[in-house]
C-alpha cells in the first residue's frame, strides 16, 4: 500500500504542478473535462471486463449477490449519514 500511495500522491502532485505552472491553452482547459470523462468511462469499462471474466466472482455473485447488495446498501447509506452528521462541524456550514 505504501508504494502505491506514494505513486498516487506523486502523480497527483505532478498533475497539480502542470496545472499550476504550465500555460494550458484555453481550448485544452475546456476539453479537460471531456477527456477525463472519456478516460473514466474507459477505466470503468475495463474494470467491468475484469469482473465479467472472473468466473469465481460471477458464481459467488449469483449465490450470495442479494446478501452482498443488502450489505452494501446499508454500509453506503450509513456512511453517507455519518458524513451528513459531521459535515456542518467540518465546514462550519459553508459546504456545498
Amino acid at each position: 500500500m505504501g508504494t502505491r500511495l506514494i505513486m498516487y500522491l506523486a502523480v497527483i502532485m505532478l498533475g497539480a504542478l502542470v496545472g499550476a505552472r504550465a500555460s494550458l491553452g484555453d481550448q485544452l482547459k475546456k476539453r479537460l473535462g471531456s477527456i477525463q470523462t472519456a478516460c473514466l468511462l474507459l477505466l470503468l469499462g475495463v474494470m467491468g471486463v475484469k469482473i465479467g471474466m472472473d468466473q469465481g466472482v460471477i458464481d459467488s455473485f449469483l449465490q450470495i449477490g442479494y446478501r452482498a447488495v443488502v450489505m452494501s446498501i446499508f454500509t453506503i447509506s450509513f456512511s453517507i449519514l455519518g458524513v451528513l452528521l459531521v459535515k456542518r462541524f467540518v465546514t462550519g456550514g459553508s459546504a456545498k
Partner: peptide, 30 residues
Amino acid sequence: LPQGALAYTDLVIDIGLMLLLFFVGIDIGL
C-alpha cells in the same frame, strides 16, 4: 473477450488510473 485478456486488465486499469489521477492533479493545480 478471450480469457487471455484477463492478464492485461490490471495493467490497463493501473495506466488508466494514473492518467486520471494526473487529471485530478491538473484540476487541483488550476
